[in-house]
Design a protein around this nucleic acid. Sequence first.
DNA 1: CGACCCTTTGAAAGGAATCAACTTATGTGG
DNA 2: CCACATAAGTTGATTCCTTTCAAAGGGTCG
Lengths: 245, 245
Amino acid sequence: MKSNSVDVEPSALLRRKLTAVADLPVSSLALLDQLSWQISSIPPRTEFVAEGDEPSRCCLVVDGMVASWNYTQSGDRQIQSVYLPGDMPDLMSLHLKRMDHFIGSISACRVAYVSHEDVERVCRTSALMNGALWRETLIDAALYRTAIIRNAQLDAAERLAHFLCELFHRFTAVGLVHERQFPFPLSQELTGQVLGLSVVSVNRAFQTLRSQDLIVSAKGQIEILDGPGLETVAEFDPHYLHFRD
Amino acid sequence: MKSNSVDVEPSALLRRKLTAVADLPVSSLALLDQLSWQISSIPPRTEFVAEGDEPSRCCLVVDGMVASWNYTQSGDRQIQSVYLPGDMPDLMSLHLKRMDHFIGSISACRVAYVSHEDVERVCRTSALMNGALWRETLIDAALYRTAIIRNAQLDAAERLAHFLCELFHRFTAVGLVHERQFPFPLSQELTGQVLGLSVVSVNRAFQTLRSQDLIVSAKGQIEILDGPGLETVAEFDPHYLHFRD
DNA sequence: CGACCCTTTGAAAGGAATCAACTTATGTGG
DNA sequence: CCACATAAGTTGATTCCTTTCAAAGGGTCG
């Protein structure tokens, strides 16, 4: 029986994520066991961190999909990034006191909270862990940079293709891809808010990719039929994800 | 006589920049004097860090304007961000070994190089300095996030207005605004590569802002005639820059 | 079964890209 | 100091992609 959930133990999940990017010694990784987590279940489409907040804790996505966004004056929402299990959407709050954006759930999800104090203690104890967490925030930044390029240089179908390639690689890194399928809980409306497109354009972009037999989408899942083909359409180069291998 | 150059002493410049964002004790800031800098003059429009590089040093912009970019397969260039005096464009190379983008000069400029070793020593010595440098990379990330929103949600003139507001605030923070004027060495072509617009659209966006008496542009300088008006057009909220005050 | 959300489709309107040309600086060498 | 070359800014006309508007299906769930 395949499953889209992962190890519920937050420290183990984080260990896995950090290891996907860099080779850390066991002695450093063991420090993660000193972190005290508090697990919380969150309904779909719920903001749980708001712009202007000054959090005293960070969260780790355990399950489901999380996103960060902002609003324009006309009330439109622009999603900046999505976060998968193993990601820490507000790790930046460790050093930027005031949130400059919102964070919320896309699907129903579970997040694990850890106090800034705990994280800071780990960082002070181990320069390697300090570096590893810093690196996580730098990879987030690399994703943002790539989103800038994606939205500026690619047309609707290419943009969607690129986004799906990114998700495929990121889900693969945390072991959530089964038979070339991964969770895709975003409605076309929300997908549009990620890609800077209207719902109508997203719908037609999906049709384009489906008609080229690149993907199949059904029931909140995406199946990649032709990975290389999709990456060609998207001009996708996974280097910016900074995964090992 | 007004001047657009700043203190040439890199450590002093960096101190000023870090202080614009957080209140650091003198004892921590003194550590910056331990950094050994090597100053280099760079001609305009010169790539000095390439995608794929694995730098062993970081650079600090001393003078002029620097940018980071990538190329599409068709050879188009997309600029991700611009860097002003006091900024460290490749600070991320400290923890991301491989560059996923290019860095180069817009105008003629001077940069000061410092070895990763030196920076790492300062980070190990002081948790506060470690946090301050980490924060710098997080603010870069906040700029990227805002660029995503800017490019997705604003039309041509609004986008340009937003970009100019950002530059105005950032130049102000390092003391390079005189009589509401700041350096703007970007051609309209390059401005388009920042904003995801064609030259023609940039040209018309400038005309729009000028015709509304919001700005004047001349000789590589921008003068803000109506700051509040410009910020209204751009829906600009400076919180994302995370400056103190 | 109906309410609701999401997806899909068609037609029209709009903003930006593209193409092409012209003007205005900047700069170099004869 | 002018002739010429080159880069940057400006303008108009056309094309194209995406948005917007409007409405019709399709699925889910109380």
